[in-house]
């Protein structure tokens, strides 16, 4: 695709422009998080850079600074109260535990199921696969009431374990689909060769096939992590004191106004870990997201 110079430059400009448009909301969100309120809401014009940047929102949500402490540092006790409801350090811990836990469980269950679905022939295999995928069709709102009651009596309400299970449920279909496509990419000859050497299915899976798809496992894990990290509705209703990030952010909408500074600061911070993970596995993602369509 090495066209003449002109086309190349045109392509570069278009590419940068397109990516720039997609970056803009995040840039704006980040900018909002360091603005004073008066620069977010200005009745006459949009404020781009003409404001005094402040890190106060991050100090509160990430470092648990209370308004009282800030008051003393800034030399004014006026206009400042406490901030314990905005301290989001425990939220970050909760979110991490839930996302990591559910990712581990999803990948474990998904990988073994996907291997079997890729390699072992049995009657109704396609129907079974469709059944797993159909779990993704369910609107979460349909199961809130039942899950809340069920969790209440099982003692899972407001627990990390409870959230891990429900996020696993949400992610399993996509994990199975992805992992199956990675397994399908590995030629069956490999299995057969190992089998001739007397290995069991399980041994083949663990010693031969799994090492070949580690990249795919990583990509699947990252997607599961992202979906768990960003899930809102079920986390909201299944917890009281445990707060995942999106739920916590939603509580910054108060009866006397939304705390846009805190919302944008925590919103921006929430992006960072998942973005790092997704960068690490981008190559695998681009391979794996063929979603099994390459099979004949």
């Amino acid at each position: 695709m090495q066209g003449p110079r002109f086309t190349r430059i045109l392509r570069d400009i278009t590419a940068v422009l397109v990516v720039g448009i997609f970056m803009f909301p995040i840039f704006w969100w980040g900018l909002t998080s360091i603005k004073p309120i008066s620069a977010i809401f200005n009745k006459d014009e949009v404020v781009f850079f003409d404001f005094e940047p402040t890190l106060v929102n991050y100090q509160v949500v990430l470092f648990g600074k209370s308004r009282a402490e800030l008051a003393i540092e800034s030399g004014s006790t006026f206009g400042v109260g406490g901030g314990s409801t905005y301290d989001s350090r425990k939220t970050i811990l909760d979110s991490t535990l839930v996302a990591v836990g559910s990712t581990a469980l999803t990948v474990f269950l998904g990988v073994i199921a996907a291997y079997a679905l890729s390699r072992i022939n049995f009657r109704g295999r396609q129907a079974y696969l469709n059944w797993i995928l159909s779990q993704r069709f369910m609107p979460p709102i349909a199961i809130i009431v039942p899950i809340v009651f069920m969790y209440h009596y099982a003692g899972l309400r407001d627990t990390i374990t409870g959230l891990i299970f429900i996020h696993t449920l949400i992610n399993l279909p996509i994990a199975v689909l992805l992992m199956k496509s990675f397994f399908d990419d590995v030629p069956v000859d490999v299995d057969e060769a190992a089998m001739l050497d007397g290995a069991t299915r399980f041994q083949i899976f663990r010693k031969v096939i799994l090492p070949l798809v580690t990249g795919g496992v990583a990509a699947t894990a990252v997607l599961c992590f992202v979906f768990s990290w960003t899930e809102f509705l079920l986390s909201l209703f299944l917890t009281n004191q445990i707060r995942t990030l999106p739920v916590k952010i939603s509580t910054f909408v108060t009866s006397t106004g939304s705390e846009w500074g805190f919302i944008s600061a925590l919103g921006t911070s929430a992006i960072v870990p998942s973005f790092i993970f997704i960068l690490l596995v981008q190559k695998q993602l681009v391979r794996g997201l063929t979603l099994g369509s390459l099979k004949d």
Binding site: K35, P36, I37, E52, P53, T54, L55, V56, N57, S66, R67, A68, L70, A71, I72, E73, S74, G75, S76, T77, F78, G79, V80, G81, G82, T254, T256, G257, G261
Partner: peptide, 26 residues
């Protein structure tokens, strides 16, 4: 604090975004 009052650092870094200020700290 009242003595150091409005020092330079407080304006820039800690510009006060709290409109719904909660009076003096409890």
């Amino acid at each position: 604090m009242a003595g150091i009052g409005f020092s330079a650092f407080s304006a820039g870094l800690l510009g006060n975004p709290y409109r719904r200020s909660l009076g003096k700290p409890a």
